[in-house]
């Protein structure tokens, strides 16, 4: 699905990602862990095409094609979805309107007719219910006045609406209470198929009790310093950041 080779990224002249290598195949779920400031969100943003970040080296292939030359909206149209760590408010645009515009743009890109209004409405209602979102949110402006947990559930709800192939979740679990965490995890698990690939960024091991990863990567100071299976998450929790720092030092020295 996605193949990242020696990716180097800077912002405002400061190098944040210092050579990331990662291969995610259809059907796989990869977890990315690491302390704050290690570059997890930067990686997610670059995959999604955020323009402020400057790619200074390496390449990303998505479905076999050069991803870096596509603008963000084209990437979304081709199936990349990012659940934001900090979803922004869109003043004056209701969720219903926002999702309808988004989905019709996706359909347009696939040469499909716009969705019938009634069909759309029943679909959106179903999927909101699945995420435990009150239907009164339909007419509220996107993320305006939402609690932290509501914002995160809203992201996952949008994921189910847009039906992407490559899903990146950036700390979707942080700020969620246990009930919300279960709802979100269930949403993601129900969404897993052999065709879809996941990159799940998290700070805590906790989420991975609910969403079980095929692979776990630990990122520190812009590099993946260790990869393994789901047991790596437990090991990381046990040994803490000092262990990571040591691994990082070794990785740089090698």
């Amino acid at each position: 699905m996605i193949s990242i080779k020696d990716l180097k990224v800077s912002i405002e002249g400061k190098e944040i990602l210092k050579g990331i290598n990662l291969e995610v195949n259809p059907g796989e779920l990869h977890a990315i862990m690491g302390p704050n400031g290690s570059g997890k969100s930067t990686l997610a943003s670059v995959l999604a095409g955020r323009p402020e970040y400057e790619v200074t080296g390496g390449e990303i292939l998505y479905k076999g094609k050069d991803l870096l030359e596509l603008p963000a909206d084209q990437r979304a149209k081709q199936g990349i979805f990012l659940a934001f760590q900090y979803p922004v408010e869109i003043p004056g645009v209701s969720i219903a309107n926002f999702m309808r515009s988004a989905i019709n743009e996706l359909r347009k890109a696939k040469n499909l007719e716009p969705l019938d209004a009634m069909d759309f409405l029943s679909e959106i209602k179903d999927k909101m219910k699945n995420m435990g979102i009150d239907l009164e949110f339909l007419n509220r402006a996107v993320n305006e006045g939402f609690s932290g947990g509501e914002k995160k559930r809203n992201e996952i709800f949008q994921m189910t609406m847009m039906d992407p192939d490559m899903i990146i979740l950036d700390e979707t679990d942080s700020g969620l209470d246990i009930d919300a965490l279960k709802i979100v995890s269930e949403g993601v698990n129900n969404f897993r198929t052999d065709e879809k690939a996941f990159l799940i960024i998290t700070h805590y091991q906790r989420l991975l009790n609910y969403i079980v990863p095929d692979y776990v990567h630990v990122i520190y100071d812009g590099r993946i310093v260790k990869s393994g299976d789901k047991s790596l998450a437990l090991e990381l929790e046990e040994k803490g950041y000092e262990w990571i720092k040591k691994l990082s030092k070794e990785a740089v020295e090698n």
Binding site: A48, R50, A72, L82, V88, A102, E105, L106
Partner: peptide, 8 residues
């Protein structure tokens, strides 16, 4: 960017 990410 948020809108771009949703295909707009």
């Amino acid at each position: 960017f948020y809108c771009n990410q949703r295909g707009l």
